[in-house]
Design a protein around this nucleic acid. Structure first.
Lengths: 250, 250
DNA sequence: TGTGTCCATCCTGTATACAGTGATATGCCG
DNA sequence: CGGCATATCACTGTATACAGGATGGACACA
């Protein structure tokens, strides 16, 4: 019941899904440069699918914002500026903040509240006495689940959809800088702050403090901004290790 | 220079575009009921295109939120509750508010500021001494342009994209209830309030009052909520006249 | 009469063939 | 030697053919 959400139609649209994941991985992995045209035929045979499902995948990735249409036809990898990434993060914060505010204003069912509080407790368990013993993989997974649950806390399907969508841009995701920060001490500290914010957000929602919940969730997202600034200014070698960050210019 | 924006690739993707607009009109026009499956073959021949561009259109409309995937394959018209519509409007307000706040915080180039102020003056000209003389069509067009310009005022392409996107849901658009309110006196009054808010939003942005600009833009969107409430509670006969509102249950 | 099973039909997902258009390279002319 | 025109090439957009699977109905049996 916990892991079924990510699975959509196991093998029915196997080709289309293979295309979607394949192209996304290729682009985020830095296999192609921004502005470069994606040839449908070569991509199709590289992924082992035909052009039809591939085109569906390309169209979807264009909607997601990862690709852009070339006026003369076809798609190209979209280039991003650091400002774009900042804005994407800010946007996610705004939407998660709205989800939190609405949840506070409208009230949350006891079941949902209990579930997300349980998630926080589980996140707590990931922290150990010695920082290097931290259960990192589990934290990443639980953190993603927390944000997903927060998106749906207001009980609005429309809101949930859009919040999840705003986290689709690779570098805007709540897990964006998490995956690779295991061995970066500067990042570790932010995890404590993050978990504290998780607790405060839920507390604010429970106490129906909508404005506070919104502000907290916005600030929480800005942790990702700090991490981005660190990567761009302090240790640029990390750029290649955060998925999609190779698409960011300069 | 003013009317070129809406035109995207005149006739190149003529079939795909015809499919997109055709299906959208069909769904919003109430030609199909929520939950009803859209048969690709019959739709294709009805629109005079083949299944391939039609499928592209369907996939896109699913991303837009108008359709939903059927687990066994294919697409169905999505049904909406009044709450969905409220949330979609709230969401647009939140995003337009964010665009306004960022514009205020970051500052707007004089050229852009002049342009949007000019737009407000032109909107003013639509009002006449006698309400029934109001230049309605022009107001609708200018209003849409105002909101579009507001979305781009922060100078962030990412932000502009997402704001525009949030206005894609038919009933969440700034023009949703505008089109047909020409002859509804209760709606006319809201136009005066709306125009006042337009002015205040721009003034707040110019004075770098980010928080105020955000709050004003949010409240501005809620005018649409008032209009929706009027339609749903006071005069349900209008439901069939607002595009897409036939998809809302009860 | 209700239920379960089997079959026919329809429909989607995928592959491939085709046409039109844009890009590129080459050759000719100035 | 450079610029322009032309021809060739490659690539996308579109149409259609095909296969696997789901859905609905009919029939038989309890």
């Amino acid at each position: 019941m916990a892991a079924e959400k990510g699975n959509v139609d196991r093998k029915r649209d196997s080709q289309a899904l293979k295309g979607l994941l394949g192209v996304r991985d290729l682009v985020l992995g830095g296999g192609v440069s921004p502005g470069e045209r994606l040839s449908e035929v070569s991509l199709a045979e590289k992924l082992g699918i035909s052009r039809t499902p591939l085109r569906a995948a390309l169209a979807r990735l264009e909607q997601e914002g990862l690709l852009e249409q070339i006026p003369s036809g076809g798609y190209a990898v979209r280039g991003f500026t650091a400002a774009d990434v900042f804005d994407a993060i800010e946007l996610r914060g705004v939407l998660e903040g709205t989800a939190a505010r609405l949840a506070a204003e409208r009230g949350v069912t006891p079941a949902k509240l209990k579930a997300i509080k349980g998630l926080i407790l589980e996140l707590d368990k990931c922290f150990r006495d010695r920082p290097e013993d931290m259960l990192f993989a589990q934290y990443v997974e639980l953190n993603a689940e927390f944000h997903s649950m927060l998106a749906g806390l207001a009980g609005s399907e429309t809101m949930r959809r859009e919040v999840e969508r705003a986290a689709q841009l690779p570098f805007a995701s709540p897990s964006a800088f998490l995956e690779k920060q295991e061995d970066v001490p500067a990042f570790r500290l932010s995890l404590v702050r993050a978990q504290r914010q998780h607790r405060d957000i839920v507390a604010a929602i429970e106490m129906r403090e909508g404005t506070r919940a919104e502000a907290l969730a916005r600030e929480h997202a800005r942790l990702a901004r700090h991490n981005l600034e660190f990567v761009m200014e302090e240790d640029r070698s990390l750029i290649t290790r955060v998925p999609g960050l190779t698409l960011v210019s300069t």
